[in-house]
């Protein structure tokens, strides 16, 4: 038993190393001087030079903290938006009887399948009519309006797994739907909410295209847009700074995942996708 467990750990650790070799290479490269990054093979580090971090932080028009803060605002807005609006829609789909439920549910599923690129232009025209270009609204308002149907679907499946007896009991006590939703369903679906929060955080933190199109002033740039300012397709790219700041960017996501993963597993586990 003990030997087999040792073997299993050994295999897993080797697998881990293969999995994260590219990441390790990036971490190592972030400590290398620019001109050695593509010349020195392997992961051996001759010196631990933090110059890429110091330079990368202040290399762009604004300090990197500005971009991190912008990304944080967008991510926070997106998380709150998704949590509130998706859970409300999910409650209606999972628990309420109303006319057109099946049709609307079908349409909701259909919107998951819609290729994103084709609505970009019409949406841009719409949001620019609202005067929202170069604001965070186009990145946040769609979440406030539950356009990420994936999460509505996830939460519907989750709520269906919560025993109906609980809301029946509350209803007999005279509770209305807002109270049942707030006092019973929401607390019980904390894990699903955590899942949504973490996925939303990761997706919105990494979103490049939407941010690129809507944000025009450097003061408003989010991290993915800022990172590409290190890259010049025709001129020189500061790879060291790019890698260093990529790691700075990755750290909060990894942390969020590390902290949230308990809820994550529990969240999906209890959705009862059956």
């Amino acid at each position: 038993m003990r030997a087999s467990s040792l073997v299993r750990h050994a295999v897993l650790i080797v697998a881990c190393l293969i999995m994260i070799y590219p990441l390790l290479w990036m971490v190592v490269s972030s400590f290398r001087p620019d001109d050695l990054i593509f010349r020195q093979p392997g992961l051996w580090l001759t010196s631990l030079d933090t110059v890429n971090y110091r330079e990368g932080w202040s290399a762009l028009t604004r300090p990197f903290s500005v971009y991190l803060a912008n990304s944080a605002v967008v991510a926070l807005g997106a998380i709150i938006g998704n949590l509130v609006s998706c859970s409300m829609a999910a409650y209606a789909f999972a628990r309420l009887e109303f006319r057109g439920r099946k049709a609307l549910f079908g349409i909701m599923l259909l919107t998951i399948m819609l290729p994103f690129h084709v609505v970009v232009v019409p949406q841009y025209i719409l949001f620019s009519q609202f005067g929202w270009v170069n604001t965070f609204w186009p990145l946040i308002v769609p979440k406030l309006l539950a356009t990420d149907s994936f999460f509505v679907f996830l939460m519907v499946q989750f709520i269906r797994g919560i025993p109906r007896e609980l809301d029946e009991a509350a209803r007999i006590d005279g509770a209305g739907h807002p109270r049942i939703f707030l006092a019973i369903i929401l607390p019980l679906m904390t894990p699903a909410l955590a899942t949504t929060a973490i996925f939303t955080f990761i997706w919105s933190w990494n979103d490049f295209f939407t941010a690129l199109i809507y944000l025009t002033a450097p003061d408003m740039f989010t991290v993915p847009v800022a990172l590409r300012a290190f890259v010049d397709s025709t001129g020189s790219t500061s790879w060291g700074s790019l890698f260093a700041m990529s790691i700075v960017t990755l750290a909060p996501v990894f942390l969020a995942f590390l902290l949230g993963q308990r809820f994550l597993v529990k969240g999906i586990a209890t959705t009862g996708i059956k």
Partner: peptide
């Protein structure tokens, strides 16, 4: 899970 976090990173 780490590689999935990397997503569409420039790197």
């Amino acid at each position: 899970y780490l590689p999935s976090l990397l997503g569409g990173s420039v790197a």
